[in-house]
Computed example of a mutant assay.
Amino acid sequence: MVLFLILLVPLLAPGAKIKEICNVIGVRDNQLIGYGLVVGLNKTGDGTTSKFTLQTIANMLQSMNIKLDPRDIKSKNVAAVMVTATLPPFARQGDKIDVVVSSMGDAKSIEGGTLLMTPLKGVDGRIYALAQGSVTIGGRNGRGGGTLNHATAGRIPAGALVEQEVAYDLYSRNEATLSLKEASFQNAISIQNILNRYYKERVAVAIDARTIKLRKPKSVSMIEFLARAGELSIDYNIKPRIVIDERTGTIVSGIDIEVEPVMITHGDIVVKIEERKSLPAIRKGSDTVNIGRNTQIQPQNNAVVTRTGATTVANIARSLKKLGATPKDIISILEAMKNAGAIHADLQII
């Protein structure tokens, strides 16, 4: 089923906390990856065509003083997998983190299998964690990830032990740097001003649209300084954006994103938006839809009529859907409007 989402996203969101819109540079997650074997499968593992799996089994057995030619291995109860995890900032030795296990051979399913001890390495090639445990199917793909709803990928909650820490001495530092998640000169200046007013001295300076340099006051530690700073709220200026998922046909837009006068022809669909002398209209064949702002759409003969007002992306999407336009048609029309300069919001296609 196609989903159209028109969300109320105001251009100004007062009260956004600094910690919600900024990151502290250097305090971040690190990605880990490893290669291992899942065993204990009920004939749903890799077949003999996955030669790397057979070689891996032979190498593992050889480390246990069992020499075996890979060509002699016929087991279908083993699958070669890639193991991924996210090492959070300030993770310490002995902490447990979730891992995601994904088949890389021709296994039909890894459900119910057990991952053998697998070293997880960072981009620098060093081992930061060891993963092992029973694989579950249908969980969440890491923190905030999507659902793993197929049998060739699963997860192990708390399945890896941290063996090595990423050193970052924040306590003894006198300076830190904030990075806005979305660049904005106005937001950078707002953060600078509120921090300087709160501490009654120059502790922050915005150096560009994304970066704010901080110098802690002498009366507090860096940890306390960042904790207090993160709780301060600013009037957060949000740049309007339209997000389109081409695969599912989902459109997410602020409800007040206006469309300038324009005429677009797409197949048998004509979108004509004029100055406020008359209602803007969308026509498909003999059917017409008039569009306005913040109104209830009411069928009237073969037309859909609304009261006059500004034309928004929300109105256009609803009206096109009522005329039976496909998600591909709606996406193409919005892209054409953006390219013609009729939509000033960012258009993000995922």
Rank of each mutant, 00 (worst) to 15 (best):
A229R: 02
A229C: 06
A229H: 09
G230W: 04
E231G: 01
L232D: 08
S233I: 07
S233M: 05
S233Q: 15
I234A: 08
I234M: 08
I234N: 05
D235I: 13
D235W: 10
Y236P: 14
N237I: 15
N237D: 14
K239T: 15
P240V: 12
R241E: 15
R241A: 15
I244Q: 13
R247P: 08
R247M: 13
R247I: 08
T248V: 11
T248K: 14
G249A: 08
G249N: 14
G249W: 13
T250M: 10
T250G: 06
I251W: 03
S253A: 14
G254M: 05
E258M: 11
E260W: 04
E260H: 14
P261T: 07
P261C: 09
V262Y: 10
V262N: 07
M263D: 08
H266L: 08
H266W: 15
H266D: 09
V270L: 13
V270R: 14
V271P: 04
K272T: 08
K272A: 14
I273M: 01
I273S: 01
I273L: 04
E274L: 10
K277D: 06
K277R: 12
S278M: 03
A281W: 07
A281N: 07
I282N: 04
R283E: 00
K284Q: 01
G285I: 00
S286K: 13
D287P: 00
D287M: 05
D287W: 02
D287E: 09
T288K: 07
V289H: 00
V289L: 12
V289A: 12
I291A: 01
G292C: 01
N294Q: 11
T295N: 11
Q296K: 02
Q296Y: 05
Q298W: 08
N301L: 03
N302F: 00
N302A: 02
N302K: 07
A303F: 04
V304M: 06
V305I: 11
V305E: 05
G309E: 09
A310R: 15
A310V: 12
A310H: 12
T311M: 02
T311H: 06
T311D: 00
V313N: 02
V313M: 03
A314V: 06
N315W: 00
N315L: 04
N315T: 06
N315C: 13
I316H: 05
I316D: 09
A317E: 03
A317V: 15
A317K: 05
R318K: 14
R318E: 10
